[in-house]
């Protein structure tokens, strides 16, 4: 069940270049699916800002976001103890019920954030999972320890300052049953070319309401127009 509530910020820290991690208290009585998102009202701005859930444990929601404009800049300045007007949980989330076992997760930049919650959930289900994370440069890498402590985590940077030099798609192991990906559109398209149709994409789009009313975030699929906020943000690769 979706709800609107005022959630207390318990931390909001810089964890990489222009990338922040914020933790919000929401109580333990809710269940989130990896890939779902929050829509956050920021004082002084009219529209809410949609943010993927990066982690949820013990009633604490974690989001990881990059400063890309004035809204996210204002969000980065909110100090702990404040409360934020949030609508959550929104969107469909990843479909993780299927019985595939050998899974690849591919994240690009801040698109890696929602894949952390997915990775944790899949590992709890005892699945074999490898995470590939592509960044531009060393200073933009985040959550390396968090991912590495749970399982196999492979990094590449475009400039070679950490891990493999080049694009993450150049080093993907094609031997997998299923994949999940989130990141720049070009990266996700390349992932599909390499790994095929057996996977899911988490899309990003400018939104207004976040719950299916305004038709702002629509994308074209093989099966007609779909709302990223409502029928998505996760789509099956074969929908495109």
């Amino acid at each position: 069940m979706k709800k609107q509530d005022f959630l207390k910020v318990i931390s909001n820290n810089l964890i990489a270049k222009n990338i922040f991690k914020m933790c919000l208290v929401c109580g333990c009585d809710l269940e989130f699916i990896p890939g779902q998102f929050l829509n956050i009202k920021i004082d002084g701005f009219y529209l809410r800002r949609p943010m993927s859930i990066c982690d949820f444990e013990n009633g604490i929601i974690t989001i990881v976001y990059k400063i890309v404009g004035k809204g996210t800049e204002a969000l980065s300045k909110i100090s702990k103890g404040n409360k934020l007007d949030v609508i959550f949980p929104l969107g469909n989330g990843f479909d993780i019920k299927k019985s595939y076992d050998n899974i690849t997760i591919i994240g690009g930049g801040v698109g890696l954030a929602p894949l952390y919650f997915l990775f944790k959930t899949l590992k709890k289900m005892n699945k074999k999972v490898i995470v590939y994370a592509g960044f531009r440069t060393l200073s933009e890498i985040f959550f390396e320890e968090e991912f590495s402590s749970i399982g196999e985590f492979i990094i590449s940077t475009q400039d070679g300052t950490k891990g493999n030099k080049g694009l993450i798609i150049d080093i993907l192991d094609k031997d997998c049953d299923y994949y999940f990906t989130c990141g720049p559109a070009l990266m996700m398209e390349s992932v599909r070319k390499i790994l095929g149709q057996n996977g899911q994409f988490l899309l990003e789009e400018r939104m207004a309401c976040g719950f299916g009313a305004c038709m702002s975030c629509v994308c074209k699929t093989k099966f007609g127009a779909k709302r990223v906020c409502k029928e998505g943000p996760v789509f099956f690769a074969n929908e495109f």
């Binding site: 529209l47 004035k70 809204g71 400018r206 038709m215 975030c217 127009a225």
Partner: peptide, 9 residues
């Protein structure tokens, strides 16, 4: 309808 982006603050 139109292509995205369709909204702006």
């Amino acid at each position: 309808g139109n292509s995205t982006p369709r909204v702006a603050e």
